[in-house]
């Protein structure tokens, strides 16, 4: 963050501080705006230097973690999930696709290796990331096969059960990140990880309620 201030001062010297001269002409105003824009992009670049290895490991791992959620959610339409589970699955696909793109962009912006996600049925191929099967909450190959072989109400029950497990894993990955020195100092990393944390906690609560309400008729409740 010291770096940020020094860039600010440098731009001030070069271009004259914006607003410091009340009689500045239009040309000066133009120059001020250009200097301010240069400072804007310089500061954004500078903000990308404050990350830690823990942040990088988190982003890299979470891309693989999210990718498995995509595999699970993509099954819903073909396996006769209920309306509410299909809605949930569609939202998970939309949200986690966007978050994968954000995490890839975060890594690319910091010149880190960017895992590419390829999905073939229930098979996940990650290029540029290490072994992802040991991350918390990840489904085993057997669990994925079991989900893939189910349909209708059975799919709903398994999907919710396994997605809760999967989300709980993601939440604990954020908790682990915040338990490390220097992690989350990067504004974008803090925002991405805390958004994932709160979104998935919210979705876990939603899925538990859905699981509870499965097959219970109104009078039973």
């Amino acid at each position: 963050m010291y770096r940020i201030l020094s860039i600010g001062l440098a731009a001030c010297f070069l271009a004259g501080c914006a607003g410091s001269n009340a009689t500045s002409s239009q040309a000066d105003t133009q120059a001020d705006t250009e200097a301010l824009e240069a400072l804007y992009w310089a500061r954004l670049d500078s903000a990308k230097q404050s990350f830690t290895e823990a942040d990088v490991a988190f982003m890299t791992g979470m891309i693989g973690h999210h990718a498995q959620a995509l595999i699970m959610a993509r099954m819903a339409p073909d396996q006769a999930a209920s309306t509410q589970v299909r809605t949930l699955a569609a939202r998970i696909i939309n949200a986690q696709n966007d978050e994968i793109a954000s995490m890839q962009r975060w890594l690319r912006d910091r010149d880190q290796p960017v895992p590419e996600v390829h999905i073939d049925g229930t098979k996940l191929m990650l290029h540029g990331a290490g072994d992802h099967s040991m991350m918390p909450g990840m489904l085993s190959a057997e669990q994925l096969d079991e989900l893939a072989a189910s349909s209708g109400p059975e799919f709903d029950r398994l999907f919710l059960t396994y997605m809760i497990q999967h989300h709980q894993g993601a939440v604990s990955m954020v908790d682990d990140l915040f338990d490390k020195d220097g992690a989350g100092q990067d504004e974008a990393a803090f925002k991405l990880s805390s958004d994932i944390h709160v979104d998935q906690i919210t979705e876990i609560a939603r899925m538990r309620r859905m699981l509870d309400s499965l097959f219970l008729t109104t009078q039973d409740r």
Partner: peptide, 10 residues
């Protein structure tokens, strides 16, 4: 009836 909504069994 499923999750409070009627649904057709596949």
């Amino acid at each position: 009836e499923f999750g409070g909504q009627e649904t057709a069994l596949p």
